[in-house]
Amino acid sequence: MSGVARPPAHRVHPGSAYALIKTASHDLLEATGSAEAAARGTRGSGETLRKAAHHEHDSFLAADQIADIEKRTGRPLVTAALAEVNGYLLIPTPASLEGAGVEHRSMKECSEAVASIAEALANGGLINRDETPKVRREVREAILALFTLDQQLEDTYPDVRPARARGA
């Protein structure tokens, strides 16, 4: 087995983090149809890309290869995995989100998130495993809508900074 399952001592993440990146890399290549199809739009051969996405090999896709392939597929799978491994959430920029009425959409999405949380909590005071996918979807949709609103306000009033939180 390679360094993926048991990362060398100089690595900072557990093996599961590297496995997540490998899985995302594999999924990204599949999104293009094949490693050979992915290779047509970036440097390296299909075999090189396939090895970089395989759990048994220590090599990983390079940043420029990831950027090329994700651009072609429109699916930032590896970028999202890298963000997750480092404790971040990848959020699309507002320009990539469609629709008008950003303020109303923000309120709608937040209301739906609160409603799904309240519904889940009504069944024993905890969000159970079966309710988690719906709650997470609604919460993420609210986050995206609020981020879009924030960006729109920043674009409209670039000289106005957010107010500081109380006690900060």
Score class of each variant (00 low, 15 high):
41 G>C: 06
41 G>K: 12
41 G>H: 14
42 T>G: 02
43 R>I: 10
43 R>Y: 09
43 R>W: 08
44 G>P: 10
45 S>L: 07
45 S>K: 12
46 G>R: 00
47 E>T: 14
47 E>D: 15
47 E>M: 13
48 T>E: 15
48 T>Q: 15
49 L>H: 10
50 R>L: 08
51 K>G: 00
51 K>H: 10
51 K>V: 02
52 A>C: 08
52 A>P: 02
52 A>Y: 09
53 A>K: 06
53 A>R: 14
53 A>L: 09
53 A>Y: 12
54 H>S: 11
58 D>E: 10
59 S>R: 03
59 S>A: 12
60 F>D: 06
60 F>C: 04
61 L>P: 00
62 A>V: 09
63 A>V: 09
64 D>V: 14
65 Q>E: 15
65 Q>G: 15
66 I>D: 00
66 I>S: 01
69 I>M: 03
69 I>S: 01
72 R>M: 11
72 R>V: 13
73 T>P: 04
74 G>K: 05
75 R>M: 11
75 R>S: 09
76 P>D: 03
78 V>M: 06
78 V>I: 11
79 T>N: 01
80 A>G: 10
81 A>N: 10
83 A>M: 10
83 A>S: 11
85 V>I: 04
85 V>P: 00
85 V>G: 00
86 N>M: 05
87 G>L: 13
88 Y>S: 11
89 L>W: 15
89 L>C: 09
89 L>G: 03
89 L>A: 13
90 L>Q: 09
90 L>F: 04
91 I>L: 12
91 I>F: 01
92 P>Y: 00
92 P>D: 06
92 P>W: 00
93 T>W: 03
94 P>G: 14
95 A>C: 01
95 A>V: 06
95 A>M: 06
97 L>C: 09
98 E>W: 03
98 E>L: 01
101 G>T: 04
101 G>N: 05
103 E>G: 05
105 R>V: 08
106 S>Y: 13
106 S>E: 04
107 M>F: 14
108 K>I: 13
110 C>Y: 03
110 C>G: 10
111 S>V: 03
112 E>Y: 04
115 A>G: 02
115 A>E: 09
115 A>K: 04
116 S>R: 12
116 S>V: 04
116 S>T: 12
117 I>P: 07
117 I>D: 05
118 A>S: 11
118 A>M: 14
119 E>L: 13
119 E>T: 15
121 L>R: 05
121 L>T: 05
122 A>P: 15
124 G>F: 12
124 G>A: 12
125 G>N: 07
126 L>E: 07
126 L>N: 07
128 N>F: 03
128 N>Q: 11
130 D>M: 00
130 D>W: 02
132 T>R: 03
132 T>I: 05
133 P>D: 01
133 P>Q: 01
133 P>C: 01
134 K>Q: 05
136 R>I: 07
136 R>H: 09
137 R>H: 06
137 R>W: 02
